Simulated assay, not measured.
Amino acid sequence: MTEHTTRLDHIVLWVNDPIAAAGFYEKAVGLEPVRLTDYSAGEAPFPSVRVNEETILDLMPRAKAERMGMLPGAAESSGHPVNHVCLSLPSGDFDALRGRLEEGSVPVSEISHDSFGARGPARRSFYFRDPDGNVFEARHYD
């Protein structure tokens, strides 16, 4: 496989309450909040959570959807969710995530096997939703 220099920097998720969303991602998913204090103090337009050293999820308040004007047509597409975001984890972290979600009464799908992804067939995967309805898949390859 050829090494690429393109990396995934961030994904913007529409959420109703960014502080509550950050709490969900920290407690249930295990992702570290970024700029949460600055957002709470009105000094940042939205908080984020860190997926890894080079990727974050921005938790954009849904109320800002009508103000998205970075390119023609952006306002019309704002607030529409993506189909799902997939998180790849080591086997132990995969099991720990599923356990935390179940402990927090977050509905999860059945575990599937060998679904295709960026690194080929995953050994196991499952789906869950965040409190704002964004769908996530969790998987591991090892």
Rank of each mutant, 00 (worst) to 15 (best):
M1Q: 06
D9R: 11
H84E: 00
R35M: 09
V15Y: 03
D114V: 03
G79K: 01
L13P: 05
S91E: 14
S78W: 04
V12W: 10
V29F: 05
E43W: 14
R98W: 05
A138W: 02
D38E: 06
V51E: 02
D93R: 13
F128D: 01
V51L: 05
N52L: 12
H113I: 11
D142M: 01
R139N: 10
P81Y: 02
A28Y: 01
A41L: 07
C86G: 08
G30M: 07
K27W: 09
R7C: 10
G30K: 03
A44S: 14
V49P: 02
V34C: 13
F116E: 07
L101H: 00
S48E: 05
S112R: 09
R123W: 07
S91T: 15
G99A: 14
D132Q: 04
H113Q: 15
A138E: 03
D142P: 05
N52Q: 03
G69H: 11
A75G: 07
L59N: 02
Y127A: 04
E66H: 14
G73H: 09
F116V: 15
V15S: 08
V82P: 05
D38L: 07
D9F: 11
D95T: 13
P121V: 14
A75N: 09
V49R: 03
N52A: 06
F126L: 02
A96Q: 07
L31F: 04
F46V: 10
R35S: 10
P47Y: 06
E54V: 15
S105N: 12
R123Y: 09
R100Y: 03
N52H: 13
D130W: 00
K64S: 12
R50C: 04
A22Q: 01
D95E: 06
E110L: 04
N83E: 01
K64N: 15
G42K: 13
I56V: 13
E103P: 13
P47Q: 10
I11L: 00
P18T: 02
S112K: 11
L57T: 07
K64R: 15
G30C: 12
G23D: 09
R124M: 08
M60H: 04
E66D: 15
E54Y: 14
S48Q: 07
R119C: 09
L97M: 03
V82S: 00
L13V: 06
P107F: 00
R98P: 03
R35F: 12
G117T: 01
